[in-house]
Nucleic acid binder design. Structure first.
Lengths: 203, 203
DNA sequence: TTACCGACCGGCTGGCCGGTCGGTAAGTTG
DNA sequence: CAACTTACCGACCGGCCAGCCGGTCGGTAA
């Protein structure tokens, strides 16, 4: 009995993994259930035995992965320290993610418009819980303790996320180099801006 | 003869306008040629009389619109003044665009992955010419004359564009209000960053 | 040993959609 | 007016793909 459940679980995991890879490569409509099944080494019948529809398969995969990200980033929110330190930790965690995992965050935003109604809402909420809301919590603290200038925290957190997204990707990697340099770039831009600083903190 | 050409041109324009509206609303694959034809008050035969394929229709629409944007933003690049003034002008032009027009910039980035090969390249190039390269030109000047801290200009311009994109959209409009306030927010964030300024320029 | 269950198979189908094609009528040219 | 070109029509086709369903088989329980 445990034997059967285990088998079923690994098959589902295989299907989800195959789906993730394929959906990352091409738009939702261009990924066929046949492709997913073949990549997961199952037949379409097997696939439909575990998932009721292509859409539910996609949503299941995404919700599961986003929940994982949420837990990961939560550590940065819960740790102590300044706003900047906590954002640094969160960003480092993000930058250290393998390509396939960080690509998911862009994937949600790309495909969210594909769905409507309930599924769309669930995806949006899961994404917001995973990343922007956690950044927002840190930003909110930063504003409260005077580290950040007063502003709408949600808007600031979206801005921060957008800056981080830019630093992923080949061009930034080529120009800036390793993760630590990219991290410095994002934090510097977000906190101090792009203009020349008029000689700060010179002791 | 002028009569026929004129008729043909208005029909094409009607088709392009209908396509633009529909493509903005749903992903490429979910927009059918029937829908476009019906919205443009033509039949599918009529549509295919003017455009060789769905893909070419999309590309034609996008290239035309992006070229319009390029011309618009070029004015900010060519005008005199500081880096900040020129970016302000460009951003103001962007923010003053009707929703349908500014949505196109997000649309390209969303749909670019749908196509491959030649068409994809043409779209990417047209987008880059329309917005990021022009911002980059201004940013490059800003770095050269010491207004901006030394950094990779392309990365900076992408960051700026990303910040502007956030300020479009309902939430920012609700929180920040009119275009001028949103403009100040973007420029402030980009130039001075989010942290509390240590009492600047107090005369 | 028997009865059953659940994982998985894979052929099939119905609908949808991009694209075609033969036709018509209005406009243009000589 | 005759010959023709052009804008447009709409029925139709072929391929593709999500989802279905009748079946097989290895395990599990009584």
């Amino acid at each position: 009995m445990a034997r059967q459940d285990e088998r079923s679980a690994t098959t589902q995991a295989r299907i989800l993994a195959a789906a993730r890879t394929l959906f990352l490569g091409r738009p939702y409509a261009d990924v066929t259930t046949d492709m997913i099944a073949r990549a997961a080494e199952v037949t379409k019948g097997g696939l439909y035995h575990h998932f009721p529809s292509k859409e539910q398969l996609y949503v299941s995969m995404m919700l599961g992965d986003l929940e994982g990200k949420r837990k990961l980033f939560e550590e940065a929110v819960d740790m102590g320290g300044t706003c900047r330190e906590r954002l640094a930790r969160l960003t480092r965690d993000f930058l250290d993610l393998p390509d396939e995992e960080s690509g998911l965050m862009r994937l949600v935003r790309r495909d969210v418009n594909t769905f409507g109604g309930e599924d769309r809402d669930r995806l949006v909420r899961a994404y917001q819980r995973a990343l922007p809301e956690q950044v927002e919590a840190i930003v909110r603290d930063g504003i409260r303790n005077g580290e950040l200038a007063p502003a709408d925290p949600r808007l600031l957190s979206w801005s921060f996320v957008a800056l981080v997204e830019i630093v992923i990707g080949d061009y930034a990697a080529r120009v800036l180099g390793d993760a630590e340099t990219r991290l410095d770039h994002v934090l510097g831009l977000f906190f101090e801006g792009a203009e020349t600083v008029p000689a700060k903190v010179m002791a």
